[in-house]
């Protein structure tokens, strides 16, 4: 009886010391979680997650204050990547319809633009060029398709154009012509 207690206590003390030592010796000074989460988010800064951009959402996720399924531009891929990073269970996307939307960029109908600069102020990535009373235009390569410029436009001259595939960006479709019997997918 005494023997058993001593043995167990001794082992507990030994492993405790070992764990304590390794916690100090092998400590990983990794990125703070928020940075890692932020790195996975698509950086559209669209605010569809109800936060004021990707960074605040990342901080909220890292603090455990937000679900990981609130990023429609990132879609399921981002949700799964977040789940893997944080060791959480994957959850269905909050807004699946929004996630299914094709990637788009903003386009300003220049003949209708009145040069009010409101969209320039709304753009989170400074992808709209222009000056007061001059027509504006979108830098297509920089536009993230966040749609934040749409509501401020007083004349509704900004439209979202879906990005079209070119031979350079085209992706081979997933092969799916399995016959009956190939029962897995």
């Amino acid at each position: 009886m005494i023997n058993a207690i001593i043995t167990i206590a001794g082992m507990a003390a030994l492993f405790g010391l070992l764990l304590g030592y390794s916690a100090i010796r092998f400590r990983v000074e990794g990125d703070p979680i928020a940075d890692q989460v932020d790195a996975l988010l698509p950086q559209t800064q669209c605010g569809q997650c109800s936060f004021a951009g990707c960074r605040p959402y990342a901080e909220a996720i890292a603090a455990g204050e937000a679900e990981i399924n609130r990023c429609p531009p990132g879609g399921e891929a981002t949700m799964i990547a977040l789940a893997e990073l944080l060791g959480r269970d994957p959850v269905p996307l909050e807004d699946e319809q929004a996630a299914d939307k094709p990637k788009s960029v903003a386009y300003i109908v220049e003949d209708e633009c009145i040069g009010c600069t409101l969209c320039i102020q709304a753009c989170p990535v400074d992808a709209i060029m222009g000056a007061a009373k001059q027509m504006h235009t979108v830098l297509t390569d920089e536009c993230t398709g966040c749609e934040l410029c749409l509501p401020p436009c007083p004349v509704e001259c900004i439209h979202m154009h879906p990005l079209e595939d070119t031979p350079q960006t085209w992706r081979w479709p997933f092969p799916r012509h399995a016959a009956s019997g190939a029962g897995h997918g």
Partner: peptide, 17 residues
């Protein structure tokens, strides 16, 4: 990789802004 490049670009531009 293209997406990652784009999102890095967007992050830099957003932070600059």
């Amino acid at each position: 990789e293209r997406e990652r490049y784009k999102s890095d670009l967007a992050r830099r531009r957003h932070e600059a802004r």
